[in-house]
Simulated scan of single mutants.
Amino acid sequence: MSKKQSLLKNGNKSSLIATIVNTIIAIIKGVAFFFTGNVAMFAETMHSLGDAANQFFVFIGSALSKKMPTENYPNGFGRLVNLVLLGAVLIVGIMSYETIKEGFLHIQHPTESKGIAINLSVLGLAAILESYVLFKAMKEVLHEAHVEASGFAAVGKSFSHLGKATPATKLVFMEDLVATLGGLIAIIGILLSYYGGFHAAEGIASIIIGIMMFYVVGKVFLDNAKGVLGEADEDLENKIAEFIFTNPEIKDIKTLFAMKEGEDFHIEMKLEIEPNLTVKEAFQIKDRIEKEIQSIKGVTDVIIEFVEDDGVKTWSQGLVSN
Rank of each mutant, 00 (worst) to 15 (best):
K3C: 00
L7T: 13
L7R: 08
N10Q: 11
S14R: 02
S14V: 15
S15V: 05
I20Y: 09
I20H: 03
N22C: 02
N22G: 01
T23W: 09
I28Y: 15
K29D: 07
G30I: 01
G30E: 09
A32I: 14
F34K: 09
F35R: 02
A43K: 06
A43R: 09
Q55L: 08
F56K: 00
V58S: 15
V58E: 14
G61H: 11
A63Q: 07
K67Y: 14
P69I: 12
Y73F: 15
G76T: 10
R79Q: 11
N82E: 11
L83H: 09
L85N: 12
A88I: 02
A88S: 12
G93V: 03
T99C: 06
T99S: 02
F104H: 08
L105P: 01
H106M: 14
P110F: 13
E112G: 13
V122Q: 00
G124H: 02
L125T: 12
I128P: 00
I128S: 03
E130V: 09
S131K: 00
V133K: 00
K136T: 13
K136A: 10
K136W: 12
A137Y: 06
A137G: 05
M138W: 08
H143V: 08
V147M: 06
E148P: 00
A153W: 04
A154Y: 08
A154G: 02
A154F: 07
V155M: 07
K157W: 12
S158M: 06
S158I: 07
T169C: 06
V172P: 02
L177D: 04
V178Y: 11
A179T: 08
L181F: 15
G182P: 01
G182I: 03
G183H: 09
I185G: 06
I185L: 15
I188K: 00
G189F: 05
S193G: 15
Y194G: 01
Y195G: 01
F198R: 12
F198D: 12
G203E: 07
G203V: 05
G203Y: 10
G203Q: 06
I204L: 13
G210S: 07
M212S: 14
Y215S: 11
V216Y: 07
K219R: 09
F221M: 11
L222F: 12
D223A: 10
A225F: 12
G227M: 03
G227Q: 05
V228K: 00
L229S: 13
E231H: 13
L236I: 10
E237Y: 14
I240W: 13
A241N: 07
F245W: 03
E249S: 01
I250Q: 02
D252A: 01
D252E: 03
K254C: 05
E261M: 14
G262P: 00
K270F: 13
N276V: 14
I285A: 08
R288S: 15
E290P: 09
I296S: 10
I296K: 07
I296P: 06
E305Q: 13
E305R: 06
F306Y: 10
V307N: 04
E308L: 05
E308D: 11
D310M: 02
G311Q: 04
L319H: 13
S321M: 15
